[in-house]
Design a protein around this nucleic acid. Structure first.
Lengths: 252, 252
DNA sequence: ATACACAGTATCCGAGGGATACAGTGGCTT
DNA sequence: AAGCCACTGTATCCCTCGGATACTGTGTAT
């Protein structure tokens, strides 16, 4: 009803995202701008899902014909790439975030959640090989900088940022649905419930987990907490302060 | 070049996945089976990417017309749903995996990685609201069962499984590309490199991380390790054995 | 023998992305 | 001032896609 990626992948060339677009001199003035195209497309996607974004629709929303768009954008892939850049927006300034690496990483994650929640079509479109723009790169930069004062190696920092941003992708509202047979609220998916219940004997662990009492755990927070705890193990090998030297047989 | 989800979402009805398909009695014999349709479609997707899977293509691969497929499958959404079920395959029997929760969870994750690696189109297709079949549910069941002997609550177990399977989705080869401006091998994306280098001053942390020496960290293993370590904090509050009581001010 | 449920097919439709050829526009050169 | 021509938006065409509908053939139950 609301998801899906366009039929062609977002394998756009990066020029459009990164290059300085000098306005051409000769010839008639363009009727609109690349930014307007992007904004329009993003608005459409936010409202009706990514599937409602077609060249036709975007163009007529702007009041022009489909083919006029191709003067601004080489193709659909590039349009999607620019939509992503636009939706993501400029990265936050992490220098204004006080506190240690943990607080900074957490803040960064929450800022990113807030952005992505506004554009539920993002995860479906940011899979697979594609061109990444300066905004998105800026977010990565900001994420990496959270680990600045940390003993982690460059490679580890990159992995940590990938891990966190992956968690964000996986737990924004719409994408989370459809990945597990239960809803984010921890109940069986309504459509699946009759079938799973009918085969209840084959799924004892699911049945038990759903029926178990206890406080609801927010999957987002649970995941973030686990990840941060895990990273902390690498920074201060055990517990809070370094009260243990180094686990001798590192668990696999 | 190889990614994308079909234009329509996978919002199929679960009947086809779960129901027992009794063969019809009257009438001519079907020329092939639902399983053959699924296999053919999966083969196509494995080879040329999900974009090459069309009713036309699948049908002609089987040697029949496009419309014949609609006798087996209500529509494209359902075809995709069945493809997922088929590609995922039956879940592993976790009873044969010895060891504690950690070893079991790790084994489950690795088995899932092996499966998903064979079908790089899976992540792009399993986003958003959709019907989940018995195989996929079985994998979830298997994952949950890894935490059987654990003090985790049902809600926590579900979150843990979501976290792990999310990590798998995010780190299978093809999906990982396109999510960060670097490759899984830890080098700048070739297409992006000139642009990022040109703006090197704006990305000090990225530049530093990429240029830093030190052993390569496998992002998959890094993430898995962090997640398992994080979960371990919940099971045995600090370090390996319970040599600490409970962190008093739990870090946020 | 006949009815009828079910198989595969032929044909048609609208929407999508995109190529190509064209006409209007307006600054730059002469 | 005249004209070139780069660049604008448009009109038209093509192919592929998912799907609806109406049809013909098939084989089992009555």
């Amino acid at each position: 009803m609301e998801n899906s990626a366009g039929p062609s992948e977002v394998a756009a060339s990066p020029e459009l995202l990164w290059g300085p677009h000098e306005p051409s001199q000769r010839g008639p003035r363009p009727a609109f701008t690349l930014a307007q195209v992007a904004d329009t497309a993003v608005r459409l996607a936010d409202r009706g899902g990514i599937a409602t974004v077609s060249m036709q629709r975007v163009a007529s929303e702007l009041g022009y014909t489909k083919m006029a768009l191709y003067r601004y954008v080489p193709g659909k892939s590039e349009l999607l790439a620019i939509m992503v850049e636009t939706a993501i927006g400029p990265p936050p300034d992490m220098r204004s975030v006080r506190g240690g690496w943990r607080r900074r990483a957490r803040t960064w994650t929450q800022l990113m959640w807030a952005t992505w929640d506004r554009h539920p079509w993002l995860p479906g479109v940011t899979t697979g090989s594609r061109a990444i723009g300066p905004n998105e790169t800026g977010w990565t930069e900001a994420g990496l900088s959270a680990f600045d004062a940390t003993p982690l190696s460059g490679s580890q920092r990159m992995s940590a940022v990938s891990l966190l941003s992956g968690h964000i992708r996986n737990t924004y509202s719409a994408a989370a649905a459809g990945t597990q047979p239960w809803t984010p609220a921890g109940r069986l998916d309504p459509g699946l419930a009759p079938f799973i219940n009918a085969a209840r004997d084959s799924f004892p662990a699911i049945t038990a987990a759903l029926g178990s009492p206890g406080r609801r755990t927010d999957p987002r927070e649970f995941g973030l907490r686990c990840i941060l705890d895990g990273i902390e193990q690498l920074i201060t090998p055990a517990g809070r302060p370094a009260d243990r030297a180094r686990r001798s047989p590192a668990p696999t």
